[in-house]
C-alpha cells in the first residue's frame, strides 16, 4: 500500500510541478546527451584505432632462393605465438606477380626485370599481431636463439619491424595516451553533468524543504516523505531518456549521411545497431541519477 501511494504521489507531483519538472528533465537530458555523445565518440575512436591498427604489420623478407621448408617451419613457429593474429605467406613467384601488376605501366622497370631473366625477389611473411604493442615480442622471437638455431636467420633478408619501430612505438604511445585522455575527459564530462543535474534537483527540493518538515510533523515516515521525490527523480530519468534517444535520431541520420567518410564509421547504423544497449545504459544512468540526487537532496531536510 505504501509503495503504491509513493509511486502515485511521485507521478502526481511530477505533473503538478509543471515547469520545474520540465526544467529538471531538460537538465537530465543534457547529462544523458553527454553520455550518448561519449558512447558515439568512443565508437568513432575505436573504429579509427582499429583501422590504424589494421594498417600496422611486420613483414619478414627472405633471401632469394630461400628454402620453402625453412620458411614454412618459421611460419608455423610464428603462428604458435599467442600474440599473433595471422601470418600470410607470399612466395617469391607471387611476389614477382604482385610487383609486375603494381608496375604494369612503369615500362622501364618491367623491361629491366625482363632483362634480368631470373626472379630477383624473395618470398615474404606478413604478420599481424593481436595488439600493436605485441610486435616487439614477435620481433624478439625472430631474434631468439631457438629461431636462429633452426637456421631461419640465414634465410631472412630483413624484417621491416626495425624500420617501422619508431612509427609503431609512437602509435602505441598515441593509442595508450588517447585512451587515458579519453577516459579522463569522459570522466570529467560525466562528473560535471552529474553535478549540474544533482544541483538542479537539489534546488527543486530546496523549495520543498518546508513541506518536507510539515510532512514529518504530521507523522509521515521518512520513506513516505522521501519516496515520492525519488519516484519523481526516476520519472525525470525516464522522460529524459526518451527525449535524448529521440534527439539523437536526426543527429545520427545527419552524421550518417554527411560524415561517414570523415569519421570512418556510419554513426546512424552504429546508433541503430546498438540502440538497445544505449537505451539500457542511458535509462539506468538517468533513473539512477534522478533517484540518487533526490535521495541525497531530501536527506538534508529529513534529519528529525
Amino acid at each position: 500500500m505504501l509503495i503504491k501511494r509513493i509511486i502515485k504521489s511521485g507521478f502526481i507531483n511530477f505533473k503538478r510541478n509543471g515547469l520545474i519538472s520540465w526544467a529538471s528533465v531538460i537538465i537530465t537530458t543534457i547529462t544523458l546527451s553527454v553520455i550518448v555523445s561519449i558512447i558515439l565518440l568512443q565508437a568513432v575512436v575505436i573504429s579509427s584505432l582499429t583501422q590504424i591498427k589494421d594498417k600496422v604489420d611486420v613483414t619478414i623478407y627472405f633471401n632469394v632462393g630461400a628454402s620453402e621448408d625453412k620458411i614454412m617451419a618459421l611460419k608455423s613457429g610464428i603462428e604458435s605465438l599467442p600474440e599473433v593474429e595471422s601470418v600470410s605467406y607470399t612466395s617469391a613467384g607471387d611476389a614477382l606477380d604482385i610487383f609486375r601488376a603494381r608496375h604494369e605501366k612503369d615500362y622501364p622497370t618491367i623491361q629491366a626485370l625482363d632483362e634480368i631473366g631470373t626472379n630477383p625477389l624473395g618470398g615474404y611473411l606478413n604478420i599481424k599481431a593481436k595488439e600493436v604493442s605485441q610486435y616487439e615480442t614477435i620481433a624478439n622471437f625472430l631474434k631468439s636463439d631457438s629461431t636462429i638455431s633452426t637456421g631461419a636467420a640465414s634465410i631472412i633478408d630483413k624484417v621491416n619491424y626495425y624500420q617501422n619501430k619508431l612509427v609503431i612505438d609512437r602509435l602505441n604511445a598515441i593509442i595508450a595516451g588517447g585512451q587515458r585522455i579519453g577516459f579522463l575527459v569522459t570522466l570529467i564530462l560525466i562528473i560535471i553533468s552529474i553535478i549540474i543535474t544533482f544541483n538542479t534537483i537539489r534546488l527543486k527540493i530546496f523549495f520543498s524543504k518546508e513541506e518536507i518538515g510539515v510532512m514529518r510533523l504530521v507523522g509521515a515516515s521518512k520513506m513516505r516523505v522521501r519516496g515520492p521525490f525519488m519516484i519523481e527523480g526516476a520519472i525525470y530519468g525516464i522522460v529524459a531518456t526518451a527525449v535524448t534517444l529521440l534527439l539523437f535520431l536526426p543527429v545520427t541520420i545527419w552524421l550518417g549521411h554527411n560524415m561517414t567518410d570523415f569519421l570512418g564509421i556510419n554513426l546512424y547504423h552504429y546508433y541503430f545497431s546498438h540502440l538497445y544497449t544505449i537505451f539500457i545504459v542511458v535509462l539506468l544512468s538517468g533513473v539512477f541519477l534522478g533517484m540518487v540526487s533526490s535521495l541525497l537532496a531530501v536527506r538534508r531536510y529529513l534529519n528529525k
Binding site: R5, M215, V218, G219, A220, S221
Partner: peptide, 8 residues
C-alpha cells in the same frame, strides 16, 4: 487531510 491519514 488524506496525507495525514496515510502517514498513520
Amino acid at each position: 487531510i488524506a496525507f495525514a491519514m496515510e502517514a498513520v
